[in-house]
Design a protein around this nucleic acid. Structure first.
Lengths: 260, 260
DNA sequence: CGTTAGGTTGACTTGATTCAACAACAGTGG
DNA sequence: CCACTGTTGTTGAATCAAGTCAACCTAACG
């Protein structure tokens, strides 16, 4: 994507896929020519519900959203948090039915791309299909790390890891100010992401704060010492595949601006 | 795949992808013409290590394998268990580096498909690329359910859920005898899959056995009352997408034999 | 036939939950 | 403008599910 071009609704999505495979002009044009319908979603509104058969794929254009499942006894597990540029329901679109819920974390703007247009796109553009597949693989990698986070890290380490992940992802997306970021999640939502209780989230955050691992101002989090947070969470960003380009792809430097 | 044909090394893989998208003769032929190298792997041998850059994709031909990660403090989390027909390291092949380990659970036979051949295949066969992508989406769905399992189910429910998942998957693959199956995992491995300790696994299994929820003979598990195990685990097989065919795909009934 | 991996059980400890109260704050309507 | 209300955050005390430690048992195997 040429620098200096007028910002477009789909820019973030296109930019992301350019990091996933080497696209040519036709690929880019095809992405930008996708039909879509923009919709504004207030915070906390459901975007997809388990069991839905959505008519199209949902792309986050602005705001944050999260996936979650609710168990039979009513407890909720948050599965991932998504940022602008992410498709959040390829499952519901390409598989038959959505197997989990997607809900707006903050106020969102979403673009709905009709299923047929998406299917036609991937049938006609092998590289785009490849890029989207790689994207799905990376999502899977993040899910795997979350299994580790809830399965094998205690509350404190899990929280540190989660904060590290958000920091790096928001930073990579240019959504973090220097040394901190706005994390618009309630403690209850953090609890549901970590598989613990809100009360315990509160205690863990308090302790991290007291020890100087983080500095909180409302929901803005600042990390004075990245290295100690990273160690406390056992965080290794390999699983985010932030530098992911296919081996054939762009020469080094092309995406440096994304990695600050 | 025509019934009655001579069994082929790649049959299970081809059969699986036929459930993921409607393939034509050329697609099938391309799959069967993939070059590969067969290798025998003893139980517990590593197949892929975190950080590896494998030269090709590994397909399980016979036996079981599992993915896992080890945290900084040495505890292990098992991420998934794989059966014949599954590719286990598309991550290492299509992304730059493997972000987790893959280890043989039992003695395995694997087929290694060179990376270039695989990339050529997906570039030339949109439907195959689609099928494999759908497969990755389903893997992701299973990972998500595992996040719920370790995050929001207690040890007992988690174990029941895990046993249900294995039952259904092995059944769908024709690897379960009626009413039971061989689960070749040690209690330590079950513990690492559930994010608990081996000692606790032992107690949970003992309790389930005493209550008549399961009947054990070595590692062969029989489920006398499927419905009660299903309820105790809060198991809903939607997430396995066992019936997954693309909407345009095969007419109903084609795969009934798989679902006993 | 000793060695080892896996399984089993009891006693004790601990990280996290539960319950319950209260504080801070934003929004809403009289 | 303030009282009212609901959501989110905070803290203490009691309880519990799961972990830890340690002993011992069993079966497989070179």
């Amino acid at each position: 994507m040429a620098l200096g071009s007028v910002a477009h609704i789909l820019d973030r999505m296109v930019r992301k896929f350019e990091m996933r495979a080497r696209l040519d002009e036709a690929d880019r044009a095809a992405l930008y020519n996708l039909p879509f319908e923009i919709r504004a979603i207030p915070a906390n509104r459901y975007i997809v519900r388990e069991g839905d058969r959505p008519p199209g794929a949902t792309l986050i254009v602005a705001g944050l959203a999260y996936r979650h499942k609710v168990t039979i006894d009513g407890s909720r597990q948050i599965l991932s948090v998504h940022i602008p540029g992410d498709f959040v329901d390829l499952e519901g679109t390409l598989l038959r039915t959505a197997d989990h819920n997607v809900q707006a974390l903050t106020q969102c703007e979403i673009a709905i791309v009709p299923r047929d247009a998406l299917v036609a796109l991937i049938e006609q553009h092998a590289r785009l299909s490849h890029a989207m597949w790689v994207d799905t693989l990376i999502d899977g990698s993040i899910f795997r790390e979350w299994i580790v986070n809830v399965g094998r890290r205690d509350a404190r380490a899990g929280m540190c890891h989660l904060l590290c992940e958000f920091a790096r992802r928001l930073e990579a997306a240019g959504m973090a100010e220097n040394g901190g970021y706005e994390l618009p999640m309630t403690q209850e939502q953090l609890a549901d992401a970590l598989g613990i209780t809100p009360v315990h989230v509160n205690r863990v955050l308090r302790d991290l704060d007291r020890e100087g691992m983080i500095v909180r101002d409302k929901r803005f989090v600042r990390v004075p010492n990245w290295e100690s947070l990273r160690k406390a969470g056992g965080f290794n960003e390999l699983y985010l595949h932030l530098d992911q380009v296919t081996p054939e792809a762009a020469s080094p430097g092309d995406y440096q601006s994304m990695r600050a």
